[in-house]
Design a protein around this nucleic acid. Structure first.
Lengths: 205, 205
DNA sequence: TTTCCATCGGCACTCTGTGCCAATAATATG
DNA sequence: CATATTATTGGCACAGAGTGCCGATGGAAA
């Protein structure tokens, strides 16, 4: 499997030579996600999406390197945000709080984007194919956490404790999403916060 | 994606009617894993494996429901073992210790199987396609842990805390394997144990 | 107008996974 | 021994994802 390098054509500053693009990753992603929600991920072919978007099947793969990547949107952008937030955490903040607050923060979205986020996560977490593919994206996310932990503790980013805490933070996030999708009245941030404290309670001995 | 129902033909008690099987899941798995190690997962086709095993391509899929499932061996059997071990833990044992010891125990294998385990895990954890597919197997594993936690705490198996601890235990296991594959001198059991204590240290506040 | 060039999309191909079904080879039965 | 039963096999055709190749398209720049 090819690494998910930027399949999105380089967005030109404003005007350059060459044919204009027919669509955008965002627009195409929206079109695809709608179809996934309506008919189910497995019942929608790349050809269906391309046709609905008015482009060729071949062109689809220039916007998304795979059908699986479509629902992820601009995840790399979010990773950059996560990295920045972590870097801003004061050195005095205990590691537990630094992680807890950063993870909560990473998953904070504007009120009006919540319904969209719910749709996206519902598809991502209930479609087996996508559950599987997600593991590849999570690798990147975990690395951001691990690097922060390593920096804090003065160890290598691939040291056991850094990797472990990356895994644990991811696990807490995912279980929060799972719960969040089931009960619409719950707040994502509070679920993540609660997850951190649940683990503390059980692990505190 | 289809759920991984038993693709392995029912093993007959000893003698029944019908044509005899040409191979076994174990033998076919060994053949395939050898090829994966030698040439890389992505450079080996199902046809290659089938040919090496002396069966038809179509028959391969009766032993393994997908190429991705081949390296997993009898994982369902291990899950049953994990469930039994958890059920045997005395009620007095604190949850932290119950989980820690059970996870360590789950990953304890006979000395002579270690090299094989290392090969298997190396392929599973370094091949992107398999890293992705593994997420589906991990779901089952996490559920076993979550059910135990739920039983212990008197909550539903899908409650937030049970799901979270399933995720966390998985995370600790995976980071231990990652470390274990890098440094051959380390013991898997000690890495897992260390992972639990690392998380305790950071989360204890 | 001509040149340049990013984007597009058709085509052919590989590989995974599946439904269908006849062929095979073993046991069970008359 | 001949025939019926049954589990397994494997060939064939097909859908769908993803890729390399390359000419066509339609903008901007010269």
């Amino acid at each position: 499997m090819k690494q998910a390098v930027a399949a999105v054509p380089n967005r030109r500053a404003s005007r350059q030579a060459g044919r204009a693009r027919l669509t955008s990753a965002e627009s195409l992603g929206r079109t695809g996600l709608d179809l996934f929600i309506k008919y189910g991920f497995d019942n929608v072919t790349v050809e269906d999406i391309s046709e609905a978007a008015g482009i060729g099947r071949r062109t689809f793969f220039r916007y998304f390197s795979s059908k699986n990547d479509l629902p992820w949107g601009d995840f790399d952008g979010l990773l950059l945000r996560m990295r920045s937030r972590l870097a801003e955490v004061p050195a005095e903040t205990p590691l537990f709080d630094a992680l807890r607050e950063s993870v909560v923060d990473f998953n904070r979205f504007p009120e009006d984007e919540i319904p969209f986020l719910r749709q996206r996560m519902m598809v991502l977490l209930t479609t087996p194919t996508l559950v599987a593919h997600s593991a590849l994206r999570y690798q990147d996310w975990r690395k951001v956490v691990a690097e922060f932990v390593a920096e804090r503790l003065g160890v290598a980013w691939h040291s056991h404790i850094a990797i472990t805490l990356g895994q644990v933070c991811l696990g807490i996030s995912l279980s929060a999403y799972e719960e969040w999708l089931v009960d619409e009245t719950l707040l994502l941030g509070e679920l993540i916060d609660g997850g951190f404290h649940n683990v503390r309670a059980v692990f505190a001995g």
